[in-house]
Simulated assay, not measured.
Amino acid sequence: MTVTRDDVEAAAHRIAGRVRRTPVLRVSPTLSLKLELLQHAGSFKPRGAFNRLLVAKEQGALSGQGIVTASGGNAGLAGAYAARELGVPARIFVPMTAPATKVARLRTLDADVVQIGSEYAEAYEAAVAEAERTGALLLHAYDQPEVVAGQGTIGLELLAEAEFDTVLVAVGGGGLVGGIATALGDRAQVVGIEPESAPTLARTLDAGELVDVQVGGVAADSLGARRFGALAFEAVRANGVRSVLVSDDSIVAARDELWREYQLAVEHGAAVAYAALQSGAYRPAAGERVVAIICGANTDLSTIG
């Protein structure tokens, strides 16, 4: 199945009033920051979660069994938030390595939290088994059409809010970059930014097919998908998205600078797009207008320097 711009536009209509239209901060004539860290539940992911749940509700597939999802944290928070708003239960499977701040916040959203395994992939296997056993709706963190289309609504907002040539997007499983690329099409260049320690898109593009990738590093809790999403892979190939890699040190430095210069408290995964600029891993051409997506705020504030 392919996600289209029509799907993204339908998602924007469906989730209107349930998600925040996040602001764009213009920090220089050629650089803007899309502040998706201000979204409900602290990341961009409620866009896709609401779209998935609302489509299921329209189809009569959202039952009293509620939803089940697997997450390093943010997709779980989004699913729990959307489920609570729609009045259904949520069971969230997270790896044992998930940050304590995200696990604690999941419980404040009335979610049933199950910690299992050391990586997202193990939590996902458990979530699939639970959905099959109970009949609950499976919400995938990044590889469902409704999820990709929902994340793409950020691209539609950008077209209405800013003038730009390039969008830098953090990459984990690919739902965000795939959705934005679909929304923008040939209207702008989309570049995926990912940690050197979790080069899921880069290795997939190199191979020309979906492959499993060893992941780790400071941003693994949010950008630690072993395998790129099939839907997102179609979108990035169709729209010429490329990958740029950044080091863990540059991610930490960018995160600190976002706090120091703009008072933006972000998680490591949300700093990778900015890190590409600050480290020189991505060098804009003269006059190139760039938007960096700042996509998540769920972090331990004591770790920001």
Rank of each mutant, 00 (worst) to 15 (best):
P23F: 06
I92K: 06
Q59S: 04
A61I: 00
G72L: 01
A80W: 07
N74H: 08
P23C: 04
R133V: 01
I15F: 03
E58I: 01
I116R: 08
A129C: 02
T101N: 10
V19H: 09
L86V: 02
A121L: 05
T101I: 15
D112R: 15
I67D: 03
G48V: 10
R21W: 02
K45Y: 08
Y124V: 04
E130W: 09
L106C: 12
K34W: 11
V113M: 09
P89F: 03
A104E: 10
L109P: 13
G64R: 11
V113N: 11
T69G: 07
E119L: 11
H13G: 13
R20Y: 10
A104I: 14
V113Q: 13
E132D: 15
A90T: 03
D110Q: 15
G60L: 04
Y81D: 00
A82H: 01
P89L: 03
F93S: 02
R21Y: 07
V68W: 07
A104N: 12
A56S: 06
R14Q: 10
E132L: 14
L35R: 15
E122Y: 02
V55L: 03
P29H: 11
A123P: 04
A100P: 09
P23W: 02
V94K: 00
L62H: 05
R84D: 01
K102C: 09
V94E: 00
F50G: 13
L31A: 09
P99A: 11
I92H: 08
V27L: 03
V24H: 02
A75N: 07
R14N: 08
R133Q: 12
V27Q: 06
R105D: 08
V68F: 08
L33G: 09
L35E: 14
V94G: 01
V88D: 02
P89W: 00
E85W: 01
A111T: 13
L31E: 07
G87L: 00
